[in-house]
């Protein structure tokens, strides 16, 4: 696994409305090494505030020129600064970092489960799987608190996914959490849960609920976690989560270096 520290030039930094942006740049080395689920550490300031780089998952990699898309939401001063950067500006990035998703075995159906912005890394996975040109079934279960917060359903459809939506307020798709949507999907006639694998990303309570549903149906799966990070490369031990290790012993793992992708059953959700 090779990572690079590069200065890249912003190609575009498009406002998708509702506080979301999609930033693009080209780097053949980073794109060539990147796999779905990995992330980048991006320097968002020129000076000392904010001091630390910000981790962003890779939303997509495409084309011969190594184009990389980063989908992000303005949440604080770091992402706000990033959203103001025009095309042509130099951006310092380190990546790709972390362990990506283990790709599904041949023929196994895929269920992507996204809570809000959790769709960001799952889209890269969807487009990689679409490039296989196999007959694999790929479902994308996208959830959000309301209609405006649903993340890129049209793009998932265009990437060959069967898209199902849920919103907490019922403004679009089925009403309720996306974990509930997953539950009813796995219960629906003709679906054999053991023939699928789940890839999930979103807020921690949503992932915990997804892990519970996956466990209930005996479906294997993975989740990609988000964390505040200082270094992003496994050195500072700052971004740890509690995990259930063999023998029930409590242990910590680094989201940046041991993750950000974990088996759904590995995090000790009750202690997070």
């Amino acid at each position: 696994m090779k990572s690079f520290e590069k200065k890249v030039i912003i190609i575009s930094n498009r406002d998708l409305k509702h506080g979301r942006f999609i930033l693009s740049f080209s780097d053949k080395q980073i794109a060539g090494a990147a796999s779905p689920g990995q992330f980048l550490m991006v320097k968002v300031s020129r000076g000392l505030f904010p001091l630390l780089r910000r981790p962003f998952s890779i939303h997509n990699c495409s084309g011969k020129d190594g184009r990389i898309d980063v989908l992000y939401e303005v949440k604080g001063p770091g992402s706000r600064l990033l959203s103001q950067y025009p095309p042509g500006r130099v951006l310092e990035v380190v990546g790709p970092l972390g362990n990506g998703f283990s790709l599904p075995e041949k023929g196994r159906g895929v269920i992507l489960v996204a809570g809000g912005m959790g769709a960001a890394p799952l889209f890269f996975l969807a487009s990689r799987l679409a490039a296989e040109r196999s007959k694999r079934r790929i479902y994308a279960l996208l959830g959000a608190c309301g209609k405006n917060r649903l993340c890129r359903p049209a793009e998932f459809t265009a990437a060959g996914c069967s898209v199902k939506l849920s919103t907490d307020d019922g403004s679009c798709g089925s009403a309720g959490y996306v974990s509930g949507l997953l539950d009813s999907f796995l219960n629906s006639p003709g679906i054999i849960p053991s023939a699928y694998v789940i890839y999930a990303c979103g807020p921690r309570p949503m992932l915990q609920a997804t892990a519970f549903v996956a466990g209930k149906f005996g479906v294997p799966g993975y989740c990609s976690l988000e964390a505040h990070m200082a270094c992003g490369i496994g050195a500072c031990m700052g971004c740890v989560i509690p995990v259930r290790s063999e023998g029930g012993r409590e242990a910590y793992k680094r989201v940046c270096h041991d993750g950000p992708v974990f088996s759904l059953q590995e995090p000790d959700w009750g202690k997070m």
Binding site: L48, F49, L51, H228, M237, C239, I241, A251, Y252
Partner: peptide, 16 residues
């Protein structure tokens, strides 16, 4: 040593 309970880092003005 297992270390301390997370969160373990936070950003502060020009520091952490």
């Amino acid at each position: 040593r297992r270390g301390n309970v997370p969160p373990r880092t936070c950003e502060t003005p020009a520091g952490m």
